[in-house]
Amino acid sequence: MRPSVFRGIRLVFQKELIVGMRFKAAWSTIFMFALTTLSCISLALQGAVLEPDLQAALLWTILFFASMTGMDRSFADEDMSGTLPALKLYGDAQAVLFGKMLYALFLLLALSLFVMLLFFLLFDVQTASLSEFLAVALAGICGLAGAGTFIAALATGAHVKSGLFSVLMLPVILPIFLPAIFLTSAVFGGEPVLLPHLGGMILYDLLLVVGASVLFDYFWYEE
């Protein structure tokens, strides 16, 4: 990438951050959604002890759907406010994609930290190795951010808004979602993380980012 692209990525990320901080409703919606879901499940279970595989499935399902409530807005908001043509005119496609991807990663890291802290607290989760758990979580979050940003761009022109983003995301993210649950369950159960599976997740993350980068040019520069 050219130095101007890196500068463009930084500028798009800064713009996203400023807009996100100014329009706090988007952040509070995501965090309140996560809090509501977590507390609902915890209330319903009344302190019941869950098996590690169930804990892992619950954690990733909450993370997936909470992230869906925020990430679908990244291009739709630009479209609604009329700033998308300006971004297309002045912003390099790769700078826009990676700037927004970086912001999505930042948003998801904050969300995951919040969800995981509450989850560990409410469900009394024990981990054999925190570093292995964090590695799995990071691999999962990177995939969500990478795929989410690209799919959000694709869904911008669609007339059906609610639900479409999740419908488009799930098949693409399953290759990360399923191993993430599998490996998180292993960590919660006191077993070592299988490195080939973690490697597979990281490889798929890279595939998603490269695939999004290649296809985004076709999508961004309309004839």
Binding site: F150, I151, P171, P175, L208, G211, A212, L215, Y218, F219
Partner: peptide
């Protein structure tokens, strides 16, 4: 849009 999604979803095949 659908062409881009079709190719993007192809990434799941190796998995």
């Amino acid at each position: 849009t659908s062409a881009a999604y079709s190719l993007f979803s192809c990434l799941t095949v190796p998995f």
